[in-house]
Design a protein around this nucleic acid. Sequence first.
DNA 1: AATGAATGAGGTTTCATTCAT
DNA 2: CATGAATGAAACCTCATTCAT
Lengths: 197, 197, 197, 197
Amino acid sequence: MRTKEGNKERDILSAAINRFAEDGYFNAKISQIAEDAGVATGSVYVYYKNKEDLLNKIFINLWSELLEKLTVIRNDLGISPINKMSMTIDSVFSVFSENPSLATVFVNEQNTVSNKENKPFRTYYNRFLDIGESIVKEGINSGDFSDDINLQVFRHFIFGAIRNSLSFWAISHDKISLEIIREQSKFLLFKGIEKHH
Amino acid sequence: MRTKEGNKERDILSAAINRFAEDGYFNAKISQIAEDAGVATGSVYVYYKNKEDLLNKIFINLWSELLEKLTVIRNDLGISPINKMSMTIDSVFSVFSENPSLATVFVNEQNTVSNKENKPFRTYYNRFLDIGESIVKEGINSGDFSDDINLQVFRHFIFGAIRNSLSFWAISHDKISLEIIREQSKFLLFKGIEKHH
Amino acid sequence: MRTKEGNKERDILSAAINRFAEDGYFNAKISQIAEDAGVATGSVYVYYKNKEDLLNKIFINLWSELLEKLTVIRNDLGISPINKMSMTIDSVFSVFSENPSLATVFVNEQNTVSNKENKPFRTYYNRFLDIGESIVKEGINSGDFSDDINLQVFRHFIFGAIRNSLSFWAISHDKISLEIIREQSKFLLFKGIEKHH
Amino acid sequence: MRTKEGNKERDILSAAINRFAEDGYFNAKISQIAEDAGVATGSVYVYYKNKEDLLNKIFINLWSELLEKLTVIRNDLGISPINKMSMTIDSVFSVFSENPSLATVFVNEQNTVSNKENKPFRTYYNRFLDIGESIVKEGINSGDFSDDINLQVFRHFIFGAIRNSLSFWAISHDKISLEIIREQSKFLLFKGIEKHH
DNA sequence: AATGAATGAGGTTTCATTCAT
DNA sequence: CATGAATGAAACCTCATTCAT
């Protein structure tokens, strides 16, 4: 038994992120997460209702944090839509750069568990997407973004693109820097692949 | 010798795709897949080594089919890089439009099971990505595509974008047509979101 | 499909003996026995009722053969009890020397399967033991064998001794000859281990 | 922490011995063993790795106990070889007289499971046999035992004899006393069946 | 709050046996 | 007789969760 000054609740969730990233949600064992966190198996259930609750808390933390950042960006009247979009991407990359395992969990497990829409983090997640959408709308209205954009499709397109780029980085963060991926993502998002003459 | 008219092997794999899409790989039960396929539980094991083998076979079929299509496109000297890219996207969308559940399985389970790189379908998958990359290279050399493109990042960016767009359609194919998603994806890929004056 | 001139029924039983010896009764698979015998799985059930029947037939063959031999020996008035006993042991060793796998099956599986006494080969087996016992009785009466012998115990003692010696040979028949084991067994049986001055 | 008064680990092993004796290793069900032991099925796996581990532990306990006893006997300089041999047999009978089911498991299942030589109890078992052999050697050298004895054959002969005698008693311990079997075994071992004039 | 031994439901997998051809 | 694809019952084992201490 190890005496930790730290916050058990936080330690357990942190261990869960790493285990979920490494082994996948279903293969990860609660007893192993507990051991990694330096607590007894039963202690996991003091702080979390069950295994699924761990996953939900991970995503609630993630999306509520991103929602907060994005809200600040959106509400800043002095920033152009293009810069708002750029800052949004920076925010997302920033969260994951601090925790690569979280990127992997996000990529692999966001659709895991629960009957579809009933996920507790969905509220934060959807609001995040909605605010992102409002920034795109603003850009279309201001003439910065093309008015050929279908908002519904765009949201999934860009989201998948960023998500998968992050996932790549999570696996290879020793081989390629997050900055390169971030800037390349912005480039592709803004300009597309065609050469402009 | 008892022989049934239908193709059991195909029926089982088809049922597996639907169940994996609906319930997720880990929640899906072999007994349920067998029931859906109209065979006895044990019959699954006549055609497939185990549950994981079912998932592997799904992806082997998927990627070998797409690899074949892409190879034909790449080798056609009379097609411009831009059209090759467009046709590649058409191919991917075409495969999934015939089988929406497959799109969901692809999105959620491609990273499931197996110790990372040892997946049997990886050979096909990697060759598919390599050929895709060679088309982009060709476009850069011909001056059609921007030479600011980082090939390594691009492959994950576009792949995640398409994947997530398909996943969105798989859930909502009653609400939005695949054509709209496909064309919007091409638009975003080629032009980006910025308005060109 | 292989055309065999040989007797399928015999081939299957022979394959069963080898598989039971090699893998043990419970680990042996009918499909493997069939393959070894060069027949289809279903053909095993043409000749034998079920897996247990295979084991029973093996022991019925064994004990009916030994019973026959022993009956001839017992009924020969011109042979002394000591020689009858010696010939009995020769008979047992002879059967197994022709089929080492049978020795292993005998050692490991005679008590396998069936609720205790209901085994079909028991009739032959018990009659074999009874005749053996009558030879010992004859030897006691004639003054050749010690009258301190408890017949009931003796039967199990000598039987286990021979059985285990054979089992040893079955595993190591490349290292030690059956003749040495047979003669040593007779020696120990007749003289015991004490030195007689 | 939930702790019950009894010794679950011991109870489970004890129940396993009885079930293995009654039903045979392969027919015995873990759930039944658990029920017999008064614990839940899963509790078996808290103390034992798997079914095979139960069998191995049974034999490890058996042979390590007998090895210890035999070592003491062998090392006692004041005992004659004949008495050492006699005490060895007493030790073996003593162990099984306390646990008739163990005798049955020993007879029927010692060769079960595992690829032949890789059994964990083999170390103890072989050392037990080696010490037994060294006692016989001592007897031959001292002139107490016949120098016609082949040690390799003898060990299997006597072992099978004792084993089978015990097995007989295990089934019929209501009909015949272990003392009679033990003394008769010694008699046959030392003197053989021939009458000495 | 913290523990970890104990639980037991449930799923994957095996394989003896069947039977339509 | 011969076949071997198909069956489905049954059991090992896992592991999330509980709860007495």
